[in-house]
């Protein structure tokens, strides 16, 4: 990885350079929280922001996307073009970049690469920025507090300057043309290490650090805990809506008003939606809140691991705040912690 240092005062020039060729999405104030929205000037950006309400997922995997248009009479596809904005996702935190990397594992798999996802991803640059944890952050427990790939640039704020990791030629070209850069010094590196340690120590101590989570997910699969947790579920699917790694979707046809033509869409779905695992004829393989909540947690903290060797959950804490019933991976970690103490 190539590293360069840039004065903080250079940053607006980088944003201006991006805006010439790309739609720039960045964290902006939105009501009481911060949201990733298109910006028209550097001044709108909130650089030091707490985790946003929803994630960057919508820019790669829109909640609703047309797969193709069809003609009913011809019983055939008539068009499948996609309008895509070349974008820079600016100011992504490490957890969110790790989340996009997790989506890559699903949508860019070798057997069935998803052409829609690929088209969005190919038109999108990712610029990360370091962060300090809020009280619901637990990315460090799931190995998602640092990001080693999947970005074009990553900015580490060193006070009056940025240490920048450069991940792509495209970004290097823009950065070098727009900004004054210099080599990193030992002092820059020392400051980087100091700030990294500071971040590590800033995570909430109330969230237990549990070892062997995937194994525990299996071992306690039949525990009564899941009935209690699932019994609280409102089936509102807010958890998956805000989750940066919930990617499940439904495929549905919608006719145009005249009934002659229509479009097939993919619509983001949620395994906590009651009918999600229902089959034709009506049998529902996850009939209860217990089954559904447990399945969601299982996939986040075990299932994805057994396929891809890492947690699907990146510990961003969005669901912790979105769930009105206090259902979240943190509750699962606390349950394991209690089990550990009870046995001792």
């Amino acid at each position: 990885m190539l590293y360069r240092v840039m004065d903080a005062s250079e940053l607006p020039k980088l944003i201006d350079a991006f805006m010439e060729r790309y739609e720039v999405i960045a964290p902006v104030q939105s009501g009481r929280s911060v949201a990733f929205e298109p910006i028209s000037s550097f001044d709108e950006i909130v650089l030091d922001y707490p985790t946003t309400l929803t994630s960057l997922k919508k820019y790669i995997l829109p909640p609703r996307e047309t797969l193709f248009e069809f003609s009913v009479d011809d019983a055939d596809v008539t068009d499948y073009t996609l309008e895509i904005a070349p974008r820079v996702l600016f100011g992504a935190h490490a957890c969110d970049i790790n989340a996009l990397n997790n989506l890559d594992l699903v949508f860019e798999d070798a057997r069935y690469p998803d052409p829609y996802f690929e088209a969005h991803r190919a038109a999108t640059m990712v610029v990360g920025i370091n962060c300090s944890p809020s009280e619901t952050c637990f990315c460090h427990l799931l190995d998602a507090d640092e990001v080693r790939s999947g970005y074009d640039l990553f900015l580490q704020d060193l006070g009056d300057r940025y240490l920048i990791s450069i991940g792509s030629v495209e970004a290097a070209n823009i950065l070098e043309a727009a900004c004054e850069l210099r080599e990193a010094t030992d002092e820059d590196r020392r400051e980087f290490r100091r700030l990294t340690r500071e971040r590590q120590e800033a995570f909430s101590a109330d969230i237990p650090d549990i070892q062997e989570i995937p194994m525990l997910m299996d071992a306690f699969h039949k525990d009564e805990f899941w009935a209690e947790l699932g019994g609280r579920c409102l089936s509102c699917t807010a958890c998956s809506a805000v989750c940066p790694t919930c990617y499940c979707f439904d495929i549905a046809d919608t006719l145009d008003e005249d009934g002659k033509t229509g479009r097939r869409e993919r619509i983001l779905d949620a395994c906590t939606s009651p009918q999600f695992a229902q089959v034709a004829g009506g049998h529902n393989f996850r009939e209860t809140g217990r089954d559904r909540v447990r399945h969601r947690m299982y996939h986040k903290l075990n299932g994805f691991n057994s396929k891809h060797g890492r947690y699907l959950c990146v510990g961003c804490g969005r669901c912790v705040r979105a769930c009105k019933a206090d259902i979240s991976p943190i509750e699962v970690l606390r349950f394991f912690e209690r089990k550990g103490t009870e046995d001792a």
Binding site: R111, Y247, D250, I251, C271, F304, K307
Partner: peptide, 24 residues
């Protein structure tokens, strides 16, 4: 196994059983 394989390509999640996708 019978599940609702909506995409057939290990993505949409409807056919998940535990950590496996019924479709792939």
């Amino acid at each position: 196994f019978e599940r609702h394989m909506k995409c057939g390509m290990g993505k949409c999640g409807h056919c998940q059983i535990g950590h496996q996708y019924c479709c792939i």
